[in-house]
Design a protein around this nucleic acid. Sequence first.
DNA 1: GAGTGGAGTCGAAGCGCTTCGACCGCCTTC
DNA 2: GAAGGCGGTCGAAGCGCTTCGACTCCACTC
Lengths: 335, 335
Amino acid sequence: MVTLAEVAQHAGVSASTVSYVLSGKRSISASTRERVELSIRQLGYHPNAGARALASSRTNIIALMVPLRTDMYVPVMMEIAIAVATTARTHGYDVLLLTGEEGPAAVRRIAGSSLADAMILMDVEMHDERLPLLRESGRTAVLIGLPADTAGLTCVDLDFEATGALCVEHLSDLGHREIAVIGEAAAVYERHTGFAERTVDGIRAKAQETGVRVLHRPCEGGYAAMAGTLARVYDERPGTTGFIVQNEAAVEPLLNLLQQQGRAVPEDVSVVAICPEQVATQASVRLTSVAIPAQEMGRRAVEQVVAKLAGRGTDEVELLAPELTVRASTGPAPA
Amino acid sequence: MVTLAEVAQHAGVSASTVSYVLSGKRSISASTRERVELSIRQLGYHPNAGARALASSRTNIIALMVPLRTDMYVPVMMEIAIAVATTARTHGYDVLLLTGEEGPAAVRRIAGSSLADAMILMDVEMHDERLPLLRESGRTAVLIGLPADTAGLTCVDLDFEATGALCVEHLSDLGHREIAVIGEAAAVYERHTGFAERTVDGIRAKAQETGVRVLHRPCEGGYAAMAGTLARVYDERPGTTGFIVQNEAAVEPLLNLLQQQGRAVPEDVSVVAICPEQVATQASVRLTSVAIPAQEMGRRAVEQVVAKLAGRGTDEVELLAPELTVRASTGPAPA
DNA sequence: GAGTGGAGTCGAAGCGCTTCGACCGCCTTC
DNA sequence: GAAGGCGGTCGAAGCGCTTCGACTCCACTC
């Protein structure tokens, strides 16, 4: 491996000069700069990451903790993770991938070993075990999600309350008075995952306001689970004409089951989904939906991290405004 | 941050002794060891990753290059990535997440900066641009996938040729004589992604052997694309009774369209899928399928990396044997 | 009872980089 | 024309760790 010293020798300058050319922290004459840059290219020099980290106590690495859960909708996670990784690169950072496996201890390990300059946590629960450790470590961090106590934390998330409200409003405007909410798997609510609960809160509040009746049912993905859930929904509320679905793995099963039961979408039943665009547009019926802006979330999280590391930080909660796109799955309530 | 020196002082020994306690590279008396370990715990010491990397030229980081493509089936990628990350941790490694964005240059950057001890490449193409750089860099690497030239490379992958053959064999045994293959998006073949081509090769070979006629059509995911593809298939080969699907985004659309056209699965038409277990079991019809062992692939890749880094390396191609599980989507060909 | 060897420990020399203070000209400025 | 300032460069001191050689002590051996 080529070292700084070798570059310096090759260019006929001192090591510190080369370092300053690289970092731009002191002014360097054009001629020297060019000579150094030429040497760098000719020798194929790359700074050693470890040495750099040691000397500067900056690793240029952001740790990303992704959940291990299988009950979460994976593509969204992946999309966020990829957005984080690519955005990070544009700011000169690499991303370290941590899975939930290790649990809260990972926070301590990363902070303690100075493996990363900052952390991004995904799938944050209302009372997340990692948060105390995070605060204690004093490390820069950004959450994707919204815990109960956000004091001193920077958070990025879709505004799920507004999302829920928006869905109800849309259905209500179309004249629907009985709505069923097909939610995430029960386990998601049990561990108090913020986004799921906030969506339901938003739905309930808007329903109350508009005088719409709401029935909320968690649902595992897949056909079998959806069939059972659907049967119970119609059992309890035969007059249901609107559905809000917040479980991507339940979308297609729901559409199919409705069709099989002779309920036409959107003539008899309207369906609003909260899901990534791709799911909404590729489903068997083009779905009216509120998109989950996974990329945007990943991007914003990194930008917040970078800002905080640059000292321009803000401890704020950034909620992205939901947007509802009307497609072919919603229409006026049947008379 | 607590340093080695502070631990040493606290325990009343020299820094090197603490280091040897940590690494176990020299024998240490039980009493000293205990004293040092106690100090480490009391002070909450974590070795600094950068310093360690610098002094030992080992980072304990494995770089994972995931593709950026959206035409790949994302959940499989995610599953592999998570398996890689968790397996790596059990061997004391962390994982650096690189996206395709940066292209082949990422290989050079990682190797040059000694950011990682080894690399795992996913989504390898037949003539992958990254391979020359990889060979040149001399860095330890394992591929998930199979390029045309595997000389000097360690590869892990499902045996897709055998997979294709297995699917044909199953359908042939059931008496099907005309088979359609619904493949990945055209772009996947255009860039010569090994697994897609090898599957088709395996299918063709076995078809020839068993006297089955095969029609292969690439297909984007979603309903619209699938509808078009299906129409064309029946246009060209009205006698088609068996389908092999290697595009998860086409599975559900295919099943639905067949149903809509009044073709019963499996009475009129048999469908074999090449997809993750979850897709096969959660589809509207429980699918006969060959599973893509994503976790196993990720795990094996890491184990190969660890073995190579420990000097126990083998430059070999490890092809996992496919397993076909018969479920409800295949049956005897109609008379 | 001197010689041998192994177990246990230490000191010091780096690993490759960043960064601080110092230095040297040269251009201003009054 | 002397004082001051600034752009440009260098030397040296670490950053926190690993690792090599050397040293000490003690239990053996013959």
